[in-house]
């Protein structure tokens, strides 16, 4: 009994520590759980990127399931996800609205002209205030907002085909269904 316990204790403690560290290592520290999930999307009314004299508000989307994608021309990984968004826009499965975050208007427009524009329209958040309201800290970020205007999902970082097919599209289908 005593000979066993000499070994079992350190081994047990070691195993526990390894499990904790192992879980810690596989977590992505950049994925901060958003407190906004299942909360109403923060209200905003912003000028549009293209049509400066028109505004866009989350209220305009009441009754629809839609994506809000935070992007900027200075954001390198936005370019990575861009083809995915273009494809999604073509498929017509869910409308994508852009939040052009802390960008210069001509830069943003030029970027869309160059790489294609998957957005129904983009709101222009030059000061990044609405970004803060939405808890944005790493562009790109994408929100799935339901018919009642509640945020149901948030993707931090680029939308990959996997994320789109395994998380976003099934969720959109469920919310629409």
């Amino acid at each position: 009994m005593s000979r066993w316990s000499v070994w079992i204790w350190p081994l047990g403690i070691f195993t526990v520590i390894v499990v904790f560290l192992g879980v810690g290592l596989t977590l992505n520290p950049r994925e901060v759980p958003s407190p906004l999930i299942n909360k109403p999307a923060p209200p905003f009314e912003l000028p549009q990127l293209h049509a400066q004299d028109k505004t866009f508000s989350q209220k305009d989307m009441a009754g629809k399931v839609w994506l809000l994608n935070v992007w900027a021309s200075w954001c390198a990984s936005c370019r990575d996800e861009h083809p995915v968004l273009i494809e999604l826009a073509k498929s017509g499965k869910v409308p994508i609205y852009g939040l052009n975050y802390k960008d210069k208007r001509p830069d943003g427009i030029a970027w869309l002209n160059r790489f294609g524009d998957p957005y129904v329209l983009s709101a222009y958040d030059v000061q990044g205030r609405i970004g803060i309201d939405y808890g944005v800290y790493g562009v790109p970020e994408t929100y799935v907002i339901d018919k009642a205007g509640v945020i149901r999902f948030k993707q931090i970082g680029p939308v990959t085909p996997e994320v789109l097919n395994e998380k976003i599209l099934p969720l959109v289908a469920k919310l629409n269904g």
């Binding site: 958003s34 407190p35 803060i132 939405y134 800290y137």
Partner: peptide, 8 residues
């Protein structure tokens, strides 16, 4: 801040 970014 916590309303937007969580306890983190």
């Amino acid at each position: 801040m916590t309303e937007r970014y969580g306890d983190f």
